[in-house]
């Protein structure tokens, strides 16, 4: 079992995340790409002391990035997790 602080990297604060939070009681995080849904669920439950109903994940490939050179590099691959809380639970993100 991974350390919970390794699983959840940061909160994603965006227009879409705000919308999901307001409408579906869902919160969006950036997580370790190697973690699975169960690990994420446990981590969130422990970190914020809430009950998680559902976790959906999605892998993102890093973007190409060039800096004045012909050959390009990449930003890191990452994983997004949308965590749905049970009714009545909230997280104070901001």
């Amino acid at each position: 079992m991974k350390d919970i602080f390794q699983v959840v990297k940061k909160i994603r604060l965006s227009e879409k995340a705000t919308l999901l939070g307001e409408q579906n009681n869902e919160y969006v995080f950036q997580v370790d790409p190697k973690s699975n849904k169960i690990e994420i669920k446990h981590a969130i439950e422990k970190l914020f002391e809430v009950k998680v109903a559902d976790v959906r994940t999605c892998n993102y490939a890093g973007k190409k990035r060039r800096e004045r050179r012909a050959d390009y590099g990449r930003t890191a691959n990452w994983k997004k997790a949308v965590v749905k809380l049970k009714d009545g639970e909230t997280i104070e993100l901001i």
Binding site: L13, S14, E15
Partner: peptide, 17 residues
């Protein structure tokens, strides 16, 4: 102007904070 939001679409709470 906050990353993740289009200009003018930032929620009030975020701005206040």
């Amino acid at each position: 102007k906050i990353p993740g939001f289009r200009p003018g679409k930032v929620p009030r709470g975020v701005v206040e904070k």
